[in-house]
Write a protein that binds this DNA or RNA. Structure first.
Length: 420
RNA sequence: GGCGGGAUACCCGAGUGGCCAAAGGGGCCAGACUGUAAAUCUGGUGGCUCUGCCUUCGCAGGUUCGAAUCCUGCUCCCGCCA
């Protein structure tokens, strides 16, 4: 195996990495592997709890990919056993929902499919940590527990906070870092990838490895990727994530919404554009920079072509204010409507309907009250052909006909189909 | 187990008999501005057949002309003590 020079490897590995612990051991490991021709074993573990892989997850995965490209061995741990516990990292309370083993297995398969979009899964080792945890005896578990003190556990920020605020810390959660660390022992990892919040477990892994007379792993920790709000950690529950399985156009829209200040981090962590070039890009027009960023990432999960199309479409529909190409149709059956809205029967027999009622029945607003507010604030436009007409009176009577476009606010739009 | 505090709209949180569909903030929505975002400004933010009506302040009852506010019971949270 021929590895690139250590300096070159280090430059690639260091990009977008917040912490390498212990820093000096990384070069030593790389040097040794280059001399012996033995690839380093790069560990990355995930718990198959959710299903949507988003860009936040791709940060360490991209790092994994880079290690692969440098000739090292990717080792993916599917935490099917740790998933039964739930990672307490950064949590201020224990997870509530418990996953069944069947859920976990289904999630794991789905997860591997998605991960394949970032790393070369055919060249990766995949392990499930249930393979070893399921076989451990209680005595063995006890022995492992003997390696960790409560005081050590409490050095973790999340546990310390919970302890201080008297929020429950369950015993099985205490075992989580131990399990994660034991995975490192079992697969003899040289490097472990993850976020900075994993520091405790990464260091515990070193202790356990030393205990077993194994070489100790080095933690390579990525910063936390912020979400599209530019503030908080990207995550599903916060609704600020960009999923890698989303359509190019959906990704495009989300990318264009990130705050300018967040672009630097995204370029650094999500693209391979050389950093000098990134600096130049960021000095140009922010909008152009954002388009460039979006295209670069989208191309990685779809194709150059799709990325281009998405960017063009965004420019036309969002930037240029043109009507979107995929307007959903809403079918209104006048007979049914008349039965639902007896007070509007008079209008309906003439295929007419008050604007506020229309928004409600077309599903563009959740209630007529909401529709009235929206209309009064100038949010309703009706397109008959290409001509928009602003409707500002909720009671304005609209002539219903098929093909009419109803646009409520910036985002909600529907094409009517009238049925008698 | 004892004592005390609390539960208000999407979230936080004021309100302690009528002027309360309920202050304020966050979020969100609409409009202006813009580069798309941010920032800023304006308005809005229970429902309806809408100058009015109906439903909502943990749940169920009660007092009262009138209750988010007072009383009784219940459920759940939280603090202190043991």
């Amino acid at each position: 195996m021929n590895f690139p020079p250590v300096d070159e490897q280090l430059a690639i590995i260091r990009r977008g990495v917040e912490k390498i612990v212990p820093e000096e051991e990384l070069a030593v490991k790389l040097t040794k592997s280059r001399e012996t021709g033995i690839p380093l074993r790069i560990k990355y573990g995930i718990d198959p709890t959710g299903i949507d892989v988003h860009l936040g997850h791709t940060v360490p995965l991209r790092k994994m990919r880079q290690f692969q490209e440098l000739g090292h061995q990717a080792v993916i741990i599917i935490g099917n056993y740790t998933a039964l516990v739930g990672d307490p990292s950064g949590r201020d309370q224990a997870r509530v929902k418990k996953l069944t083993e069947a859920d976990v297995e289904a999630n794991a398969r789905d997860y591997l499919n998605q991960v394949g979009k970032v790393i070369d899964i055919s060249q990766a080792e995949v392990h499930r940590n249930g393979d070893w945890f399921a076989k451990m005896s209680f005595a063995e578990i006890l022995q492992l527990c003997g390696k960790i003190t409560v005081a050590q556990l409490l050095t973790r920020d999340d546990f310390a906070k919970r302890y201080a605020s008297q929020t429950p810390i369950f015993l099985h959660e205490c075992l989580y870092p131990m399990m994660q660390a034991w995975d490192s022992v079992m697969i003899k990892s040289d490097i472990e990838l993850g976020g900075t919040e994993q520091l405790y477990s990464f260091m515990l892994a070193r202790d356990l490895q030393r205990d077993q007379h194994l070489p100790q792993q080095v933690g390579v920790m990525s910063p936390i990727l912020v979400g599209t709000d530019g503030e908080q950690k990207m995550g599903k529950s916060l609704g600020n994530y960009i999923g890698i399985s989303e359509t190019p156009f959906d990704m495009m829209k989300k990318f264009m919404q990130i705050p300018d200040a967040t672009m630097g981090m995204y370029f650094n962590l999500l693209t391979s554009i050389p950093l000098e070039e990134v600096t130049a890009i960021l000095q140009g027009h922010p909008k152009e920079a954002k388009v460039r960023l979006a295209k670069s990432v989208i191309a990685g999960y779809h194709s150059e072509q799709h990325a281009l199309e998405a960017a063009d479409r965004w420019q036309r529909e969002v930037g240029g204010g043109e009507l979107p190409t995929d307007i959903p149709t809403v079918t209104l059956n006048l007979t049914t409507l008349a039965a639902q809205l007896p007070q509007c029967q008079g209008d309906l027999v003439h295929s007419r309907l008050a604007a506020a009622q229309l928004l409600k029945v077309a599903g563009l607003t959740p209630s007529t009250s909401d529709a009235i507010r929206l209309i009064q604030q100038g949010g309703l436009s009706i397109y008959d052909g290409d001509q928009p007409t602003l409707i500002s009176d909720p009671k304005a009577v609209i002539e219903l006909k098929t093909g009419l476009l109803v646009k409520a606010g910036k985002k909600k739009i529907a094409r009517l189909v009238i049925d008698h």
